[in-house]
């Protein structure tokens, strides 16, 4: 599982910045059937956390109502230089994470 985080390379203290994340995940709904007619088990990302400089700033509870390869965009106030780190867990218990450095000056 891979993800791409898009944040500005640099921000001023107090500036509201946009964070965008795109995670590679099928977000299998559990309502589909394979060619043999067997139901395909659900496998979606359940929880997604975003920490900035070690503090949780955003979290999301997702499910089959979110499209494959979930995309999320939200904002945060730039405080100090630090890592923007995402972590998530899906129905199969597979955890993933991705981080990117935000420079505040």
């Amino acid at each position: 599982m891979t993800a791409r985080i898009q944040i500005p390379a640099q921000a001023k203290p107090g500036e509201v910045i946009e964070i965008r994340v795109l995670i590679q995940h099928p977000m299998e709904t559990g309502y589909r059937y394979d060619d043999a007619g067997k139901p395909i088990p659900r496998n979606t990302i359940r929880t997604l956390n975003c920490r900035y400089d070690g503090i949780e700033i955003f979290s999301a509870e997702l499910g089959p109502g979110i499209g494959a390869n979930p995309y999320l965009q939200f904002t945060t106030v730039a405080r100090a230089s630090g890592d923007v780190e995402f972590s998530w867990v899906d129905d199969e218990g597979v955890a993933g994470s991705e981080r990117q450095r935000l420079v505040v000056a």
Binding site: V16, I17, M27, T29, Y31, Y52, I55, I57, F58, S59, A60, E61, L62, G63, P64, G65, I66, G67, P70, Y71, L72, Q73, F74, T75, T76, V77
Partner: peptide
């Protein structure tokens, strides 16, 4: 919340004063 999806709760986002703005975008099914 969806009116017609088999699972009506599509997503729940938690934010706070650190968000600066309440502005979220995503792609739903």
């Amino acid at each position: 919340i969806s009116d017609r999806n088999p699972e009506p709760v599509m997503a729940t986002f938690r934010l706070g004063p650190q968000s600066g703005r309440a502005d979220i975008a995503t792609r739903v099914r």
